[in-house]
Design a protein around this nucleic acid. Sequence first.
DNA 1: TCAAATACCTATTGCTATAGTAGGTAAAAT
DNA 2: ATTTTACCTACTATAGCAATAGGTATTTGA
Lengths: 148, 148
Amino acid sequence: MRISAKGRYGLAAMSYLAANYKNGMAITVLHISETLGISKIYLEQVFSLLKRAGLVISIKGSQGGYLLNREPNGISVYEVLTAIETTMTEKTDSTVAEKQPILDKALETVVFSQLDDAIKSSLEAISLEDILNNVEKLKEPDNLMYFI
Amino acid sequence: MRISAKGRYGLAAMSYLAANYKNGMAITVLHISETLGISKIYLEQVFSLLKRAGLVISIKGSQGGYLLNREPNGISVYEVLTAIETTMTEKTDSTVAEKQPILDKALETVVFSQLDDAIKSSLEAISLEDILNNVEKLKEPDNLMYFI
DNA sequence: TCAAATACCTATTGCTATAGTAGGTAAAAT
DNA sequence: ATTTTACCTACTATAGCAATAGGTATTTGA
């Protein structure tokens, strides 16, 4: 699975909004771009996609910015990535379909649709809260790996 | 998951070799390219990768061609695709790592490595034989979809 | 032994998607 | 009003993909 920079930016930005969700304040793209080290104007385009997907709410004007539209527990990584990655589960159409439609169909059934399902259920099971929990765990100074 | 045309070509070609495995004869790239409707010189490059990965054996010269190196049951779709797709599980390195290494690490742990595992185990569970079995099933004339 | 058939190799081209830039307009707050 | 913000469209540069081109090396069979 190749996940583009755009997808990673989106996940990082959404995680940041999630970390500040309880606070209730809108956060600007400029602030996020500086905090995470992402080009501001590029990140704007990412937020455009996130908003279109209904994952964030925007507030225009001074003191405006973005907010999660749902609580971190209710937003899955799958939703975030499908909102951003255009070619998430897309497949280039193969010329094999013309000469060997049965083989093509078999590949579709046995391989590609199963793979799509595996990816989907894997990413649907991960929420923004899961990411935050791991961030907190990594922050613990006594997080020494005694058991490794 | 985006799987390139190259990957699809490789799977189709390997399935074709699998279908003719018991026969024991080498099959030429030209023959496969014509049967499947794939550019011959492009398919040659695909076979170069498959050979490098040890999935096929080649025989040079007249009456030469390619053969599976193992029985269809022993070759997984994962092996075929990783032999071909360079960016299978690759991720573009994000600039987030520099300013927010903890968040970046959390995303790596919670999202990307889990996704890689899901993709890997999903594709490892599918063999070329599974594809052939589905092809046979689709060929049955009485394969009417009574239950749909 | 020679010609045909094949794998095998490297370089080149055109195209598409991605990453990022540029330069704005619209709306809201102070 | 001015500033701050989201929001929009167009543009550029680059990289990887799909495919082409033009060979060499090796084996078989006539």
